[in-house]
Amino acid sequence: MSGTLLAVRGLSAGYGPLRVLHDIDFSIAPGERLAIVGLNGHGKTTLFRAIMQLVGWQRGSVLFEGKEIGGTRSLGEGRYTPGIVRLGIAMTPQGDAIFPGLTVREHLDCGAHAKTAWRDRTRRRERVYQLFPQLDELQGALVGKLSGGERRMVSIGRALMSDAKLYLIDEPTLGLAPKVSKRVIEALVNIPLEGKAMVITEQNVALLSGAVSRMMGMHAGRLRGEVGHVGLA
């Protein structure tokens, strides 16, 4: 497992009788930004949910830093998720996954749930503000009253407050205007990985061109191989 942070092998998953993912295989190394691209409804979100043990059932192997976090599961979705988060995986769900009654600052601090992250939350918060300067000006604003793009920045920033080694960013530009989408992707590219890794799911291939290490296509619950190496080392 040397040089590999996450390795997914033969992963199938679904909900009730519905099989959504079919024998998924891929891996990601520290320092990589991997994009998984495809249309809505083809399994990208379910892939992230399977890694986080949030699906109804699954089988196959998911290795994180050589430790098995996948295996066969049939009941109790979410039961093992807190432990997976503690291992160092942070997921940003698609859409406005927010607490509308909290301020921007309070929302970000929710991401610093581990003891080490909480003690270091001020510095981590400043790092988020450097990536998203407009959030610095909105620290006391209620998240529920922000624009769609600002809410997406808060959601991503919350994940960055943790001690994560792997970031799973699901459809970060979904429903956003083109200019806002571009700013969100630029911020994701500017996040220093330094031994960490990031997987981004997205529909807009052109938006990610030159912004990630490589792309893989997903269709009907299957990975279709690499779209190409598109810019970053």
Rank of each mutant, 00 (worst) to 15 (best):
M153F: 07
S213A: 02
V180Q: 04
V180W: 08
G221H: 04
L232Q: 11
H22A: 00
R124I: 11
R33Q: 02
E150C: 11
W57F: 11
M1Q: 04
Y15W: 04
R158V: 06
R79D: 03
T81Q: 11
R151V: 06
G16I: 13
P172S: 00
P82C: 03
P178W: 05
S209T: 09
G14C: 04
Q53N: 13
G144K: 09
L75D: 12
V143N: 03
G101C: 08
L5C: 01
G70S: 09
G217V: 14
R214H: 07
L160V: 01
R19G: 09
L63S: 04
G195V: 14
G101V: 08
G101K: 10
I28E: 07
M198I: 14
V128H: 05
S2R: 03
V154W: 00
I200N: 05
V230D: 02
G10N: 02
E137F: 09
L63C: 03
G76C: 07
L142P: 13
P172Q: 01
N40S: 13
G144M: 08
P93D: 12
V154D: 01
V184I: 15
V227C: 10
E171K: 01
R49Y: 14
V212C: 02
H107L: 05
L75G: 12
L11Y: 11
E68L: 03
G70A: 01
W118I: 14
I84C: 00
R73W: 14
K115P: 15
R119C: 10
Q130T: 11
I200F: 06
G95W: 09
F99C: 11
D96F: 05
E68N: 05
I28P: 13
K165C: 01
E77G: 10
V227T: 11
Y80E: 06
G149E: 03
I191C: 10
S147I: 08
Q58A: 06
E77S: 13
V180S: 06
L188C: 04
R119Q: 15
T173H: 09
A114K: 15
R124L: 12
V37N: 11
L34K: 00
G56T: 09
V154C: 00
S209V: 10
W57Q: 15
A13K: 08
A114E: 15
G221A: 00
L18T: 07
V128W: 12
L232D: 03
T103N: 10
M218P: 15
S2K: 09
W57V: 13
E77P: 15
E226T: 14
R9L: 08
T4N: 04
D25A: 02
R79N: 12
H229R: 02
H42E: 14
R124V: 09
K115E: 15
L193V: 12
L131Q: 00
L34I: 07
E68G: 03
L102I: 11
A159Q: 06
V199Q: 05
G66I: 10
T92D: 06
S27I: 12
R49D: 03
A233E: 02
A177S: 04
P30L: 02
R183S: 07
G60W: 11
L18C: 07
H219Q: 14
P100D: 06
F99Y: 03
P178N: 08
G38V: 15
